[in-house]
Design a binder for these strands. Structure first.
Lengths: 132, 132, 132, 132
DNA sequence: GTGGTCTAGACCACA
DNA sequence: GTGGTCTAGACCACG
């Protein structure tokens, strides 16, 4: 696992993303235990609290579940599988978008701006549909 | 110009993005002067410091240039036109990605996470290519 | 007996609750002996310490009593019957509350927060009454 | 605001609940600013991080929104109003349930157990409906 | 041993 | 000044 402390993306989000990646890649399977808070923290030279925060986020999103005094486990079930498949497709599309932007010489920041714009645009549209 | 103070995107980035949009849309043409710092700040009820930061960012990216004591001007040339076209394509691709995510029931937050992940992935890869 | 290790409710409380349910349902009658610690622990694949804690809680609440070196016995009497009836009523009321919350689109987490709030509110009020 | 550090309910949840209570009671109105992190922390003699956590939870639940460098604000809109009304009803029902339990001599712990049981029961039922 | 919460204090980005 | 993130280290409940 690679952490970039200089990135403006919070470390705990970097951790959460990479754990999720590992799960999707099949490194950890359903109901399998993840590395303990302290073990992972020591491994990547990061404060246990920061790892805790990453795990919190994953648990909130329903990707893992925790058993106090036991450990953290990968949430299983169809939901997870379906989500995984859908996300793979989205990531593939996003990758194309990002590459198109990079080859056109756009800065990462500019690409992010375009993304945020697109996202908020879609949100306000779906909101409008809801109201109608 | 519309500012959304509830968004987690910094206001200065929102301003920079909208000025860029205006330039691409032809509202401001090459070597034309942009609204003065104070004028724009007063217009959108925002701290002048914040507008300053937006202008800084645009200048750093080479989209505008400043004449000391005179004002800020749009940098012209083919680059701007080419960039505009490229961005349109990227936005189109991003829109597809976002829609795919939404129709799969992913939360905006989740889509953003996937985007940030994809972006950082591409960055580290192009970095690796550069080193080689 | 069914234990849900994914639940955030401690396992020992899950055990205690289900034994109490069994008593109320008449599975164990007054002054009848409950399954031994080790037997129950083996049955539900749980650490004996955990079962011990459940039994402790039940004894503290006066629902069972222990005979040293012999076993654990159901405390009998009118109290148990009365309590059983009262609990049925409470569950009925709680069920209405939960259903109202769910049909209003509240998340389970949110409903739990409201419950904890209500409970602590009632506690501080009865405390105040006690002091007066 | 009253905090009970001895309670087993986490302090940050106590804070979140009381802020929510204040909002529902009209102490803070839509788009009004809440007390700053540090101010509130100093007021109730608690670490700023703990208050932060409470605010995080409220923001995640869509009850408040934060503006970096500005402050925390009450989220407005119909959604909030509708939610507020629904929750009031639920709290009223819960209060009846809790009082019924208390007057029957049930311990708070036992009432909580009954609640968790009821909640999980409703959840598994609605899940079953979804699968069908 | 595990996860969950809390404190003390620091640095950063933003307005 | 604000909120957001991070570290260091502590104590607790649980199994």
């Amino acid at each position: 696992m690679i952490i970039d402390p200089k990135s403006h993306v919070p470390i705990y989000k970097q951790i959460a993303a990479q754990i999720l990646d590992a799960i999707d890649a099949g490194v950890y399977r359903a109901d399998e235990m993840l590395p303990s808070l302290r073990a992972l923290a020591a491994d990547i030279r990061v404060n246990p609290n920061t790892v805790q925060r990453a795990y919190d986020e994953l648990e909130r999103e329903g990707i893992v579940y925790s058993k106090r005094g036991v450990g953290l486990f990968v949430a299983g079930g169809r939901t997870a599988a379906a989500r995984g498949a859908a996300e793979k497709k989205v990531v593939k599309l996003l990758r194309e978008s990002v590459l198109a932007g990079q080859s056109a010489g756009l800065t990462p920041d500019r690409i992010r701006t375009l993304f945020e714009y697109t996202l908020s645009e879609s949100l306000s549209q779906s909101e409008r549909r809801t109201r109608t």
